[in-house]
Amino acid sequence: MAGRVPIYGTGPSGRQAPATQASFRALERGHLHEIHAAAPDRAAALAFALSHGASQAVSQGMGAQAGAIFALRATRRQRLPTLFSGDGLALLGIDPGRLTLVETGSEVEMLRAGLEAARCPGVSMVLMESEGRFADYDLTASRRLVLAAEASGVTILLLRGDAEQRSSGAQTRWSIRSAPSVPLEADAPGLPAVEAELLRCRSGPAGGRWLLSWDAEHGCFRDRDAGERDGQPSVPGAVVPFSRLRTDAGSDSQRQVA
């Protein structure tokens, strides 16, 4: 199940200083990322999205107050009626006070509100939840979001539940599933675990697959296989956060979609 390219390493390696590896750069700041998940895996996908967006805001020294998260959803499109639980958010290390929940009547309104939030400099993350087809999300809409994210440095995450992949200007596209956890004593379910598959990456190799489990000590998701690899000699450049592999792929975005 381990990926071909690890996205996270625990030890210092190669050119990269240890500091740059302190956070998991799977969802780079100031970009649009898509996360695909089936309806029952929504909690896993949200945990993946929120924990990464949140840890980045804190690691960049923005403080808890400035790291506002706007979570948007179109009310009518919800098949499973769910609410965020403040206690659950707190367990993932996210102060529920940072979260502002916005409910819109339609998906067009959601895109519009999300775009507006993305242009707001105080916001650290915009999380849009959609289910199903989401016909209004096309290349133009995604490109608008990308431009807004690049201009303001806001991370935009689009959660697509039960949806087909569609060409877009997103930086990365992930598929998230719940993974079996490592049982605690007495056969109790363990800490959160997700299986992340990188379906597309605009500036790097796609197709990696990682099994991430929650690290309660550091409050973030970690590659479960990374520890095993510690003993092996590390190849320079291989244990590099995703963002470092970036090439200049700005111009050929049209070609690289899907």
Partner: peptide, 9 residues
């Protein structure tokens, strides 16, 4: 631990 998402209802 509490879950991240609650069903309502």
């Amino acid at each position: 631990p509490r879950p991240l998402l609650l069903f309502d209802p």
